[in-house]
Simulated assay, not measured.
Amino acid sequence: MIRITAACGLKLSPYQLERWRTAGLIPRPGPDTQVKIGDTKVYPPQTAALVAGLLVCAPHCRSIDDLALLAFFNEVPVPFDPVRAALLTAYFPQYSKDREQKDEALQRIPAKHRGQEEPWYDWAEAAAFVDMENQAAVRQMRDNLRRRRDLATASRHELDGRVCGVLTWLNAPALPTHDSVFMADLRAAMAFAGPPEQSRAAWLLAAHCHSEQLAERSETSGSERLDTFLAVTEKELRSLRELVKEALDAMWHMATEGRCRRFDVNSPSMARGAGRMLVEWTTVRRAHPAGARPAQLLVDSLRSLWSLCSTDSVGEGRGAFECRTRPGR
């Protein structure tokens, strides 16, 4: 194997070879993993392609999990078990951390204010507090709100309060379309009729939240998500990878004003993010119709928001809006 990769201009060390064998990334020599040519047993071309792919990804990675994920999302034929283990490591510690952040945010709500609204309201407010950490989206919403004449001289504190209010209702089961004050804030924060480069991060965050409002909402636990993911087959895993890559392309197309159509997963951090999206979708897809695709859900959610925000206001027109947001254009 070392000689084969050297012939391709790649350097494979004995240490790497053994480390990857131990981790299950490449098979050990044996009757089931080698073919006989004359009196010599060699790895088949598929294994050589696998090792070559790992060697290309390896310089960017510090751990086996990162290598497995980066190779997987770059379509290197990595074995199923190490990829599944890496996805578990990427998703569940972050899932627990996110839950802890929301629980901490919930505890910061004054006790006298908790439970005054519907049972879901406190949790929606806690989720909004966490979403406020998305600095790019919050900054865009705040700047868009300031463009409204009555908020032109508003303090940052007031504007942040309005942004948090918008995010609270975006994390609620449904938007209060009957509330004219809230809808005015939502229309201003989204600024669909304004320069898109000033609102793309805000649109992505809002579309993600609103897509959950369009789904069938249900409570899940970490153990339920784990069981759901462990039931995923190798074939399903490859299919899920394509759905995630399609969704990343759609988001990147939107974020770059249509200049770029493909999002390259070229670093461990990007691979971990894509991996978390994949594991999340194994549970989230149950709340959507069979065959739903996350990329299309994102666009449908954004168009739904556009439609709601265009009521009682003059927008650019549905045709023009769809031309600016259609994936793959």
Score class of each variant (00 low, 15 high):
Leu243Trp: 03
His253Glu: 10
Trp252Ala: 01
Val244Ala: 14
Val265Gly: 03
Ala250Glu: 08
Val244His: 07
His253Gly: 10
Ala255Glu: 07
Ala247Thr: 02
Arg259Leu: 08
Glu236His: 00
Leu240Trp: 11
Arg238Gln: 14
Arg241His: 15
Met251Gly: 09
Arg262Gln: 01
Arg262Trp: 02
His253Thr: 03
Ala250His: 06
Asp264Gln: 07
Arg262Asp: 02
Glu236Thr: 00
Phe263Lys: 13
Phe263Cys: 08
Val265Ile: 13
Ala247Tyr: 10
Leu237Lys: 14
Leu248Ser: 12
Arg238Tyr: 00
Val244Glu: 12
Asn266Lys: 11
Asp249Pro: 03
Arg262Met: 01
Arg262Tyr: 01
Val244Gly: 11
Cys260Phe: 09
Glu257Cys: 12
Leu243Thr: 00
Glu242His: 13
Thr256Lys: 09
Glu257Asp: 11
Asn266Met: 09
Val265Trp: 04
Val265Asp: 04
Cys260Thr: 06
Phe263Glu: 11
Leu237Asp: 08
Met251Glu: 11
Arg261Val: 01
Thr256Ile: 07
Arg259Trp: 01
Asp264Arg: 15
Glu236Asp: 13
Glu236Val: 01
Ala250Lys: 10
Glu246Cys: 11
Leu243His: 02
Lys245Ala: 06
Leu243Arg: 02
Leu240Gly: 12
Cys260His: 12
Leu243Ala: 06
Glu246Leu: 12
Glu246Ala: 15
Val244Asp: 06
Lys245Pro: 04
Ala250Ser: 05
His253Tyr: 06
Met251Tyr: 01
Glu246Thr: 04
Phe263Pro: 05
Ser239Arg: 15
Met254Cys: 05
Cys260Ile: 04
Lys245Trp: 03
Asn266Leu: 03
Glu246Gln: 14
Ala247Val: 01
Arg238Trp: 08
Arg238Ala: 12
Glu242Ala: 11
Glu242Ser: 13
Leu248Arg: 15
Val244Thr: 08
Ala255Gln: 09
Glu242Trp: 07
Ala255Ser: 10
Arg262Cys: 05
Phe263Met: 12
Leu243Lys: 13
His253Val: 01
Arg238Ile: 06
Glu257Tyr: 08
Ala250Phe: 06
Glu257Leu: 08
Asp249Cys: 03
Met254Ile: 09
Leu248Phe: 11
Lys245Gly: 07
Arg261Asp: 03
Cys260Gln: 15
Met254Trp: 09
Leu240Met: 15
Met254Gln: 11
Ala247Pro: 03
Gly258Lys: 03
Asp264Asn: 05
Glu242Cys: 12
Glu246Phe: 10
His253Phe: 02
Arg259Ser: 14
Thr256Cys: 05
Arg238Ser: 14
Leu248Asn: 12
Arg261Glu: 03
